[in-house]
Amino acid sequence: MHNAAPDIFRTFSPWALTGVLGLLGSAWALSAWQKLGVGKDLLWSAARATVQLGIMGFVLGWLFRQHQPWLLLVFLVLMILMAGRFNRKRGAGIPHAYWIGVGSIGLAATVTLTWMLFSGLVFWRGESLVPIGGMIIGNAMNAVSLALNRLRSEIDQREDMLLAMLALGAGRRQAMRSLYGIVVRSSLIPTIDSLKSVGMIHIPGITAGMILAGMAPLAAVSMQLVVMLMLTASVTLSVSTAVLLAAPYALTFSQRTEG
């Protein structure tokens, strides 16, 4: 069991990478044939991921050798600031979408990592803090993007009702309150569905990685459970915060487009 990971990675070769690229090429061909419009995004995303992961490998290797706690904090902050850029794109049309994303993700990451540090689930080392922090930030970023996108869509669909409530004297937050639950629930669907199906439909990445590295399956799934509960809590916190912050600004944008 403990030799599983070396055996697997010893068989990795350029031919394996070529095969994976071939699979991606078949997806691109299907998109081009059916005119789905995602082929360009597939190729660009794959190329970008290759470059980014290569750079990340060198950066993490350097970071882990420094043993400087403040560098870990700087690295996590930079990740949060970069995540805000994706939120700004998905939340186009909502004023301050970038800072709303940064603030909500930063809050969720701070609360979750602080609790995990105090509870002893992670340690103040790069090998422990950065991967867990990256998972929290990445999952929160995706959920906040969904939330901002859904919020904008709901306002577009219900604009007449919301403007009527404002005309009758309701405040912006009061008018938007009916949308909070709808947006938060829809944004949490992927996270909650993953939590429901884990272990029954799919084996998550952490479990698979630890088993491949030689860890006992029971210990691997125990760690996976902790991580998934942690991610669910942090995603819920980030989405709820983002919706509360964004709602009145999004409604202001809607009013401006009316005239």
Rank of each mutant, 00 (worst) to 15 (best):
S13G: 03
A208Q: 07
V38Y: 12
L36K: 12
S194P: 10
L168F: 09
M56Y: 09
R152M: 14
L251I: 07
E127V: 13
V144N: 05
R173K: 12
T18I: 09
W15C: 09
G259T: 11
T207H: 06
I192D: 08
S145Y: 00
V77A: 07
G169H: 02
A5K: 07
K196L: 08
H202E: 10
T241I: 01
M79E: 06
W28C: 14
D41K: 00
W124V: 15
L148M: 13
A246Q: 05
M215E: 13
I55N: 13
L81H: 00
L225D: 00
W28M: 14
Q255C: 14
Q68D: 15
G259D: 06
A29T: 04
W62T: 14
T207L: 12
W99N: 13
L73D: 06
F118L: 09
A208I: 02
V74H: 02
W70H: 13
M165N: 11
I80Q: 05
A4N: 04
Q34H: 12
G37N: 07
V130Y: 00
N87C: 13
I105G: 12
R125V: 10
I55A: 15
R125W: 00
I136M: 03
Y180C: 14
N139T: 03
L225V: 11
R125P: 04
Q68M: 15
V198D: 01
L146K: 05
L81D: 01
T207M: 13
A92I: 06
L21F: 13
G181A: 15
F253W: 07
G169S: 08
L163I: 08
A143L: 02
A108L: 04
A83D: 10
A220T: 01
G54W: 00
R88C: 04
R85Q: 07
L76R: 00
M82Q: 08
L60I: 12
Q52F: 04
D41I: 00
A109H: 06
T50Y: 02
D156K: 06
A170Y: 15
M215I: 12
S31R: 02
L113I: 11
L188G: 14
A97T: 07
V226K: 03
V239R: 01
Q174P: 15
A4C: 04
L60F: 08
T252Q: 14
